[in-house]
Design a protein around this nucleic acid. Sequence first.
DNA 1: GATTAACCGAGACGGTACGTCACGTCTTTAA
DNA 2: TTAAAGACGTGACGTACCGTCTCGGTTAATC
Lengths: 209, 209, 209, 209
Amino acid sequence: MTAASAATAPVGHNDGVTDTPRRGRPRSADADEAILTATLAVVGEAGFRGLSMDIVAERAGVSKATIYRRWPSKEALVLEAMRHAINPLDDVDLGSVEADLTTYLGNLAERMSHGKMSDVLPHLIDVAVHDPQLRHSLDEYVAQRRVPLLAILRRGIDRGEVAAHVDPELVVDAFVGPFTYRRLLTGAAIDEGFVRELIALLLPAIVGE
Amino acid sequence: MTAASAATAPVGHNDGVTDTPRRGRPRSADADEAILTATLAVVGEAGFRGLSMDIVAERAGVSKATIYRRWPSKEALVLEAMRHAINPLDDVDLGSVEADLTTYLGNLAERMSHGKMSDVLPHLIDVAVHDPQLRHSLDEYVAQRRVPLLAILRRGIDRGEVAAHVDPELVVDAFVGPFTYRRLLTGAAIDEGFVRELIALLLPAIVGE
Amino acid sequence: MTAASAATAPVGHNDGVTDTPRRGRPRSADADEAILTATLAVVGEAGFRGLSMDIVAERAGVSKATIYRRWPSKEALVLEAMRHAINPLDDVDLGSVEADLTTYLGNLAERMSHGKMSDVLPHLIDVAVHDPQLRHSLDEYVAQRRVPLLAILRRGIDRGEVAAHVDPELVVDAFVGPFTYRRLLTGAAIDEGFVRELIALLLPAIVGE
Amino acid sequence: MTAASAATAPVGHNDGVTDTPRRGRPRSADADEAILTATLAVVGEAGFRGLSMDIVAERAGVSKATIYRRWPSKEALVLEAMRHAINPLDDVDLGSVEADLTTYLGNLAERMSHGKMSDVLPHLIDVAVHDPQLRHSLDEYVAQRRVPLLAILRRGIDRGEVAAHVDPELVVDAFVGPFTYRRLLTGAAIDEGFVRELIALLLPAIVGE
DNA sequence: GATTAACCGAGACGGTACGTCACGTCTTTAA
DNA sequence: TTAAAGACGTGACGTACCGTCTCGGTTAATC
């Protein structure tokens, strides 16, 4: 866990090596686990709207104070729970940018359409607008998901497949932006056809001539 | 006002000409105005989070029942208030797709960065996920903003500037998607440079060769 | 209900005749009744310690907000409930001060020993020390109970049984004081014998010679 | 310290001489002192209501466990703190019952009106109703204060000033009762005039004729 | 000198109740 | 019939104490 991510990590935890000797009764790792698990369960069943701190506390067999000792808000808790649960999309390397993009974006499309967490993101976005701390954590979470895509592009540049002057960050925005735009705003389908057409549109713009 | 938009329009309004003559005390147009104005004022000052129906009622000098008689929920009210306030971006026609895009996207960038309503959208998105009615209204609102962009592209195709096989809807997604992606998720800057680079990246992909 | 007693009466009630015409939905008299009844029931069953606002609310079929709209604190509520429940000790007039005192103090002794409310008073006293508003209400409540005793003494003075120079208020203190002292502090018995002895001690001190 | 008082004395203390020699680290006398001092300070500043175990612990530079190792409850702690602080009213012997009573009751009046602990007693009374252990300790504390008064009366009987058939215990109740009654219930003044009048009323009833 | 047992501070823990807030509905009187 | 006023049930909020329970570490008396 990086220093940056500490924003939403359990407050006051000491994951470092030999800082201060840690006085008092240590935080219960069981409680951490139980709270995050309960949070995921409740969000999965009742959605974000149906999630209350009281319910999480009850399900986790934990008092509310124990939750608030770790996370300052419901949203921070949920964000942490998401980190806890998500296995990142693996990087893929099939030898060509087109194949890699097709695979990776196909997986992403699948997740955004049917993932159980898909209704949580909008809420987090909403809250993050007003809460810089949460915004930071959300950024970081998002950045994590960009990494494989950046890798694909950089390999493409190395291989000469992609023009050297192309800014990979911008291209990632160009690929991922339409996904979130459809998901959050237009509600248009995010399916295989969409992925294919998007690649067909953008790929020519980045290949080296 | 279209039929579709009736979802969030004041309930039971009689916009027709000579339906039933309506008995009893008529709805106060002043109240409509006062409620929407108060809503905008409060959202502007305190953000969406600081907006409560009680506060709006007090500010508007109106009872809560009067609000609920017109709109079914807080979100419907806010969406209506946004429609009420926003003047759409005018279509532009400078003779070339590149010039049109630069102008239109430049204006959009300006608005998304500094508009006073910029923090309302995330909240509406959040709510729209769970409320199909509101989702519909939001779609419509979004569609309105796509219209000028579609017009630019279609004129480009007509002039032969843009390849005929290009799907204008997809291209709109490709242009607007990165804007919302940055605004809502990464928090990256949406400025003149971004607009310029995005156009530089995408334009070659749509021009007829 | 006197003006003075308004201190703990439901806040904002208008028991007057034709003040302001009272706008808005009026307070529910049913709720008043249900709350006070539930309060008495819970205090009777679980004692003051076992009384929580949540429990009262549930038992009364009422929301906590509805209770807090009427009374500012648990103690004010309980005091009001006591007023609501208690039928005052009737004045007695048997023709002689001794007989009257014996009867009245006998009743009082019975109540203080076995009354179900007997454990509430100590708590109210405790709180009243810090809350002037409640103190006032408690004073008034206490004063009510002194009235019959004062009447007995004044009749005695009128009949020449009691010396004219005697201060009835002081004598009431002298009679009632030992009762509360035993009840609250020493825990000594408050029985028939005690009443008899106390009268035997004090009566000679107040009779006219 | 008597056996009876052990109820609220530090639990497990070994005040005896040569019981078991006690192994392990002995209790810190400093901690005892610091806790009691802090308790008195906080009660003095914030009243009983503002007293929490956490605050006492912090002020005393002590952990809560250290407090609970000594006293089983907040009330037991406070009662002990009161014992610790209060120097009993000395017995007086001026040669006449009237003079003795005037002096002793005058002092008592002064204390009850202005003593810093004057608001603690009501709370202890409240708690004692439900806690037999504490009730016992409170009785004992009260009894202590009755002793000088009993002595005055017994000397009066010995000297023939007071009628032999008078029950001193009852007379003490008759004198002290009105004090506590005013203090706790009516809120009436407890001043020199009150003392004078009370003596004027009761003294004739107890003198031997 | 090593062991042992009770102590110490810090502070986390489950629990319970608090008093507040906002929601969307309902019930008055007045227009 | 609509209006303003405001009470209503519901349900969640975040806080504050309670008294208990670990922690790592300390301090004597015993072995």
